[in-house]
Amino acid sequence: MPATLPRLDIAVENVSVTYNNARLALYNATCTVEPGTITALVGPNGSGKSTLFKSIMGFLRPSQGQVRVGGLPVPKAQKQQLMAYVPQSDEVDWNFPVSVFDVVMMGRYGYMNLLRMPRAKDRRLVMESLERVGMVQFRDRQIGELSGGQKKRAFLARALAQAGKVILLDEPFTGVDVKTEKGIVDLLLQLRDEGHTILVSTHDLASIATFCDRTILLNRTILAEGNTQETFTKENLELTFGGLPMVSLEHMLPSAEVSS
């Protein structure tokens, strides 16, 4: 195993996102995901977590601000296969006629020629990734025939096969039993020790302190960031989940409707 990968950070600078319906989803977000850490992105539903995630992954174009990964603009980082993404379960069409193996192989497409013909190395890496998440015996299953935890692991294997140095996981623990959650956490800790930078979005507070080095608290904008112990204070959490004080809200979000 490569013990020392070049470690990459994610730098989010002044990112604002306004959707078509003029709703401001994210306002002036600036934060840094330190290289070689597991960082939790925490906020209530509708706080702009997914929006920030999509901005980092380049799925949507912020109306203002920029994101850099390892100093590179996101499209460039993606072309170099630096960024892997594990989607939320409800973003996946589970009825799609693909097998677990097919899905994991999609992680290798960026390395293949135009025809996407897998080489021996691609197959080997796919099998290794499947092995690492314990999904080898399910490789020929259609993805809809998996349990919640298996589904997560299949997509995690795709990220492993892609060998991205930055891994983003969107709500990885929803619909997953405790045992699988622990398995995923162990794997993430290992990946961190190998030098990956990992960003996990979650609204499940209980598990964060057990494995996340750093935490970013978010509700329409970045409210706090830092080491998990220092950031995870009662005041910060109240600020994030209890709604912002009205004064600062009106100051910061002139056109946003804020759900309390």
């Binding site: 380049g58 499209p75 993606q78 960024m83 989607p87 996946v92 999609m106 992680g107 497409y109 960026g110």
Partner: peptide, 9 residues
């Protein structure tokens, strides 16, 4: 999965 397609450049 068009998002993944984007994510791998």
């Amino acid at each position: 999965d068009p998002n993944h397609a984007k994510a791998i450049g």
